[in-house]
Simulated assay, not measured.
Amino acid sequence: MRHPVVMGNWKLNGSKEMVVDLLTGLNAELEGVTGVDVAVAPPALFIDLAERTLTDAGSAIILGAQNTDINNQGAFTGDTSPAMLKEFGATHIIIGHSERREYHKESDEFVAKKFAFLKENGLTPVLCIGETEAQNEAGETESVCARQIDAVINLLGAEALNGAIIAYEPIWAIGTGKAATADDAQRIHASIRAHIAEKNADVAKNIVIQYGGSVKPENAAAYFAQPDIDGALVGGAALDAKSFAAIAKAAAVAKAQ
């Protein structure tokens, strides 16, 4: 049975004080909560502080990161390697986020190389996929998602998706306040799982597929009630301990039913 994962993507937000306060508050809010994995992805500069804060608290919160390079060392100014992330305890690494694809011109093929290198280094890729508003209106959502997943499958085979996480994030819903309805999100999640099942049914059955895009405490339960939605990749709400914990608790409750 799939285990839900709720992950907070802090994006380019934070300070030393905020890292300690947020993680301390989140750890307290999640005391006694079971049945859901909770992860956070701070900016790279704060991963060390986040690791120390979580370790000191004896926290079960999983540490992640927002990006990786496809090299472990060398002349690659400004980049962060999987080996470095691993040394600081980060295990769940976001790749393919729409902001990276748009602002840094990362192609499907380049994201697939990141996926491969994370797996090679024993880390968990959190593969973001999703369509623009124009693609959504043109009825291209399912084909766009399939294309982005197939970049990984074509490079590595469907079995490489084992142990990874897919995060479906409609780009038009990220940080906009807009959100897909729970029924619409379920339809796309089901199509993603069906597409993977065409290559490998066991992988499709077991892979965690998160929803992302303006997930809040007010709408989280409706998403998590859907059979193919296995948690969330959370942006703005992840910067508030009570809000983020409420989302995680909703996932735990929904999957326990």
Rank of each mutant, 00 (worst) to 15 (best):
H3L: 04
M7R: 01
G8N: 04
N13L: 06
S15D: 12
S15R: 01
L22E: 01
L22R: 08
L22D: 04
L23Q: 08
T24S: 15
L26I: 06
N27A: 10
V36L: 12
A39K: 01
A50I: 10
R52G: 11
T53E: 09
T53M: 03
G58V: 04
G58I: 02
I62E: 09
G64S: 05
Q66M: 04
Q66N: 03
G74L: 07
G74E: 01
G74A: 03
G74H: 10
T80Q: 00
S81M: 03
M84C: 01
K86H: 04
A90E: 05
H92T: 04
I93M: 02
H97W: 09
S98P: 07
E99C: 04
R100D: 00
R100F: 06
R101C: 03
D108E: 12
A112N: 03
A112Q: 08
A112H: 05
F117Q: 05
E120D: 11
T124H: 04
T124L: 00
P125N: 04
I129C: 00
I129N: 02
E131S: 06
E131F: 09
A134S: 13
A134P: 01
E142H: 02
V144T: 08
C145D: 15
A146Q: 14
A146F: 13
I149L: 15
L156Q: 15
L156V: 09
L156W: 05
G157E: 11
I165S: 02
I166R: 07
T176H: 10
T176M: 11
T181W: 12
D183G: 06
H189M: 11
A190K: 14
A190N: 12
S191A: 15
S191R: 15
H195A: 07
E198F: 00
D202L: 08
K205T: 06
N206G: 14
I207M: 05
I209N: 05
Q210G: 09
Y211A: 09
Y211N: 11
Y211Q: 14
S214T: 14
D228E: 12
D230I: 08
A232M: 11
L233M: 14
L233V: 13
V234C: 00
A238M: 11
A241S: 15
S243G: 03
A245S: 12
A248G: 07
K255F: 15
